[in-house]
């Protein structure tokens, strides 16, 4: 079994796929920063942001369900914000008394929790759109364009190249453990040793994985050195952005600023 299914990139020829990766990365970041800056409870701005996300998703030809399903992954984190409905002081929305005491839910608290969950959900969908429509080598080029240090981008590139190899390796370790362990379908029979023993076995697997990676890293370096590697990661220079791409970048940034102004005016 191979874990290539992990790669969220979907090849395609949609306008979003064809957009330059540098423009996409910059606009995604701008969108997420804008979303974070919009004040709590500025609903009009949230609707506009959602409209933008939705249009991008429709333009990718991947189907909206794909985005919605993946975006719900962040939802459990929203629990961290939930207590705010009680703790933010404001106009009481509902009050009830139980054995433990009186609980008051404030309007402002609910507003804040819903805003946080929405922000997170919208930002996540834009990040998914970026990852789903941009091949990794293009993302690396975009990172270089954003002045991320060359050495770091080179390590990112090598990591990506071996990520699936090592994930396969980890899966093989897990399968080997399963093959050597007994388990009963009957829940009444306890299987497996004490927790510390189980953790030790897993630790051994992790150590094994690292050991294999050390050896693989050495071999990779030897192979690279044999092909003339001298520590410098050489890449083709990127073509200059075309006028149309500049226009999209400028337009996108302008929309972000406008939404922000609107949100601040409304708040």
């Amino acid at each position: 079994m191979h874990v290539h299914f992990l790669d969220p990139y979907h090849a395609g020829g949609s306008p979003i796929h064809r957009l330059d990766a540098r423009v996409k990365l910059a606009l995604t970041l701008a969108f997420i920063i804008t979303t974070s800056l919009v004040p709590f409870g500025a609903w009009a701005a949230y609707i506009l942001l959602f409209a933008i996300v939705l249009s991008v998703e429709l333009l990718t030809d991947l189907g909206i369900a794909y985005f919605f399903k993946r975006a719900f992954l962040a939802l459990p984190f929203a629990l961290a914000a939930l207590p705010l409905i009680f703790t933010v002081q404001g106009a009481p929305l509902a009050t009830w008394s139980s054995g433990a005491g009186t609980f008051t839910i404030s309007v402002e608290g609910v507003e804040r929790v819903v805003s946080i969950a929405l922000k997170s959900w919208l930002s996540m969908q834009m990040a998914i759109a970026l990852a789903a429509t941009t091949a990794f080598p293009q993302l690396l080029a975009a990172m270089r364009a954003l002045r991320i240090p060359k050495l770091l981008v080179a390590i990112f590139g090598l990591m990506w190249r071996y990520l699936f190899v090592l994930a396969d390796e980890a899966l093989r370790l897990l399968r080997a453990r399963a093959a050597r362990s007994s388990a009963s379908r009957d829940a009444q029979y306890k299987t497996g040793g004490a927790i510390v023993w189980r953790a030790r076995v897993t630790g051994g697997m992790a150590g094994n994985l690292l050991l294999r990676s050390f050896e693989r890293g050495d071999r990779i370096y030897d192979a690279m050195a044999a092909r003339g590697y001298d520590g410098e990661a050489r890449v083709l220079p990127m073509p200059a952005l075309q006028a149309a791409q500049w226009l999209i970048l400028g337009g996108g940034l302008a929309v972000c600023v406008l939404i922000l102004l609107l949100a601040l005016l409304l708040a």
Partner: peptide, 26 residues
């Protein structure tokens, strides 16, 4: 030195993959 670039890439991939390793607690 230069030797570490491939090594760090592979080890980063290994830590990422290592996060798949788990053991049942309760």
């Amino acid at each position: 030195g230069e030797r570490q670039v491939p090594m760090m890439g592979v080890l980063a991939a290994a830590i990422f993959a290592g996060q798949m390793l788990n053991f049942p607690v309760a």
